[in-house]
Nucleic acid binder design. Sequence first.
DNA 1: CAAGAGATCATCT
DNA 2: GATGATCTCTTGA
Length: 211
Amino acid sequence: MVKSSRQNAPAQILSRFGIKLLRSFYEQPTVDVAKQLLGKYLVRQHPEGATVGRIVETEAYVGPQDLACHASKGRTARTEVMFGPAGHAYVYFIYGFYNMLNLVTERKNHPAAVLIRAVEPVTGIDLMRARRQLDKPRDLASGPGKLCQAFAIDRSLNGADLCDDVLYVEERDELQPKIRATPRIGVDYAGKWKDKRYRFLVRDSDFVSRT
DNA sequence: CAAGAGATCATCT
DNA sequence: GATGATCTCTTGA
């Protein structure tokens, strides 16, 4: 018995646990990172329990020239993290209510990041329900503000290293899903940059913020 | 279902 | 003093 279950162990480990993404992943061009994050798993460790979600929607904010990117306004206290090395969280507060989670990309002094807009709840669903005061899995993390609420992500995580153990992304045993690209949401002020197709969605996912 | 308003505060002018 | 990488609720068809 013991022997036969040991024989099965490697495959089980590969499918049940993922491999944490390395900093080199985040150092790639921002659009590539945004696309490749789809189908990977956002993991948040927390005293109340872990929450995990399959990333189904992202947006790329590619640098200071991108008028939708906060860094286009210059280097300030808020945007400082984006000017640092890749593989850190950029979390900011907006509209007086919501936090937004971004993952910093590219090299030091090139301010760019990927906004995580929606995940499909996988682990810790009851914890997400409690935090969101909602039952339906589809509504738990189908938007950047909702997902931060469900995952207990706030500005205390601004600057967190994604190569540590509190907040990170892992790859599981899954091929990259089919992708759809659209303009980004809520950036009408960004001139010619507002029409760039820098929003990426998993095709056919029911867990995106909007279609 | 679509459209609109209101909530509420950190950040930058 | 204005605004925003949003969400939820209300209204009305």
